[in-house]
Design a protein around this nucleic acid. Sequence first.
RNA 1: GCGCCCGUAGCUCAGUGGAUUAGAGCGUCGCACUCCGGAUGCGAAGGUCGGAGGUUCGAAUCCUCUCGGGCGUACCA
Length: 551
Amino acid sequence: MLKTLVKRSFAKAWHRLEANERVNKGIALIEVEQSTRPEFGDFSSSIALAEARNTTFSAHELATEFANALRTDTTTELYSRVEIAGPGFVNVFLAPSLIHSALRQILEMGNRFGYSTIGQQEPLQVEFVSSNPTGPLTVGHGRQAVLGDVLASLYTNLGYEVSREYYFNDEGHQIDLLAQSLWARYRQEFGDTINIPEQGYQGEYIVDIARQVVKEHGPSFTDFDEQTSHRFKQDAISRISSMIKNDLSLLGVEFDSWFSEQTLHHSGEVTAALKALKAHDGVYELEGAIWLKTEENRGVKDSVLVRSDGRPTYLMVDIAYHINKHRRGFTHVINVQGADHQVEQSSMQAAMRILGYPEDFLDYAVHQFVSIKEHEKTTRMSTRAGKFILLNDLLDELGRNVVRYFMAARKPTSHLEFDMDLARTQSLDNPLYYIQYAHTRIASIFRRIGSPAMSAQVDLSPLEKREELDLIKQLDRFPEMLQQAAFEFSPHLITDYALTLARAFHAYYDSYRVLGNQKRLTTARLALLRGVQIVVHRSLQLLGLSIPEEM
RNA sequence: GCGCCCGUAGCUCAGUGGAUUAGAGCGUCGCACUCCGGAUGCGAAGGUCGGAGGUUCGAAUCCUCUCGGGCGUACCA
């Protein structure tokens, strides 16, 4: 990577500068950044400005010294020019041959470009969606599904051994309510006036399920006894979870494992988890309940683990679940969750601390909510009231690619306003198609010439236009951007990057002709297009979007 | 009250310490096709980066206060 090379050379030059007695030794942080304007070169450093105070030089004098140190480094031929500008910036202009070598590397790597081995195959789990099987997925879940799925791909790309998991709350109060709601709807089919419980589920889908039960079993369930309750529970769960799986699959999201909450209860892991917390002095009793000591973390008060009637809370079970994850050998766990789970996140982190797990074991990728804007009206989601826009409806109308793109293109910590009218009427002006079109145009030119294999040995020296060198520099940034997107839980960096790259490509392609009489030039430009194609391909792939050859 | 997130162009959003032109898409207005796919390109108009202080050589970006919006603040899950 170009930046790495530059940074290394800067560090070396700075090291030599430290021989000067007017400079303090060994504390400078070498910062290199990509220049924002062409006249500032390719990379620049403000190190002289930041470090002048640790020397007896002025910032400008220090920059001069530093620039000289860079220029006299004869071991490399990185720069065509080194300049000082403004109050003390040092700007370097890369030699074209160096930039060409970056493209050569991309051609050599092909579709492996951007992969990294940082993760060293460490087992990492991404847990996401994990919606209760009490109703179909909403657009909010859709955002989480896309976020989790892309993060999982990103970490795979960084060399982690990634597993996607869905945690299934198939036990507890909400499930009881679900069964009761289904029972009420079932009896209503026979004209009985049984009401849905106050906090129960009102959605139309419960009616559909009730009708199916009627169809299969008739009026045979006359009382809501233990057996019927159990039956309705399992029936509702299995039907709703297959709805959920179906929606996810339409979105292109596949899980490696589905973890059932019931298993934690049956295996005794919940009890064991409580015991472990007790052994670490992490709990206390008050008013007949057992509480977790959260040490007033981020303004969050202590939470109940075991109710006074002896039943464990959701948090208690969740702690057992995380112990289970740790035992399964995951060294990193990323939980993707909505912003409404803040308290749980703090409590869980506290529990992990109490149990002595490493600080980096558990991370939360938090995302804000989604609202749908349609005809100037904004609708918010609420599952229980039965008023929500279903992910399924969105997929039906817009298709997997558009939905995934819109969900991924926003910074997760920002509220996402999904503009239906825009998504519909402008689907042809959609940025997604603009990116895909870049790939298509390149695919088309290679089809036309019979798609010869592109050798990395090709002579790239004819690539001397500023647009060509800029394109290569953009391609070269790809791996670094991917790392940032992964570590900052920010898939939108990929969509931003891809859009910028596509723009640069379209502009270039419009003003320079690739196929021509000059063989060397044509070959070199084809190599450049291949490089762009590789990176666009990889971007779309990581986002889970289709990569069209034709549109 | 307390905690977290957000406030940047008409709309939807990037940018979270760097250089007297703060970016993109959509929308508006104008221009460019005998040419590798026009799902394209070029240009224009449009912003005191919610407000006020502060830190710094340097602030949309960091700190404090403040105004506005969202989400929490359950012996719900």
